[in-house]
Amino acid sequence: MTMIVEASAVKPANLKADHLAQDQSTTTTVGEISSPNPRMVCRDINVWYNNNHAIKHVSLDIGKNEVIAMIGPSGCGKSTFLRCLNRMNDTIPAARVEGSITLDGQEIQDKGIDVVPLRARVGMVFQKPNPFPKSIYENIAYGPRIHGLTNSRAELDELVETSLQRAGLWKEVKDRLDAPGTGLSGGQQQRLCIARTLSVSPEVILMDEPCSALDPIATAIIEDLIDELRQQYTIAIVTHSMQQAARVSQRTAYFHLGDLVEVGTTDDIFNQPKHKLTEDYITGRFG
């Protein structure tokens, strides 16, 4: 079933300058934006950085237990969109987000919504591994500690171990949990960051180009890990590598200059793109 959703004609209420109105998307998203079993539902998302319209009228569902990949040329807004999903854009003073995003049916865009529990439910892994300058153990224990998830040292130990195991790092570091996290290799650091995210038991994990700073071997390990994690978590991954998107995701969304151009199953997007821009990108004419 193909449903074409018109990009909303509703203009953001506080859009001041006329020239900004010209930014308004003229394209429509091709493909099925909704999911039969959605975890997160985004409708008509707009993001501005000061006067720069970075995301234009994007609507997209993220289904349970799926890996959705977001691809597109750099500067297309895919990372910005990802950061909307756990409201990390709040940390950028210049950013302004409009539209509706729900998590399990609950609106998260409202002013009154608390970002702390939201971020505990929607975890995030960043482009560059960013372990805290603490020991491996403390890196993992940080989340559970601040949220008070465990009641005893034994429980915490266990949680740290499970998290590391799930991230596939346990075997490599179990003998040096007290060593600094920054001393690990790049790929290990990134898995440490994934383990850190898992430690607070999120429902959704957002990954912002998690392998772009890593070598091919480390990348392969992380991609396998993503596939495994799909059993338990919903994963949205931004990547600049089309091969990676093809390898790890079930659905793929193609962004172009702030527009969501096309969404579909990964197979469809890569084998029979419907939109000209998508096709050009997939076939390597730009990007």
Partner: peptide, 15 residues
Amino acid sequence: VPQSLRDGSYALGAT
């Protein structure tokens, strides 16, 4: 202190 460390902490739901 790099912003990435702050982001990592906020992404875990830290205040």
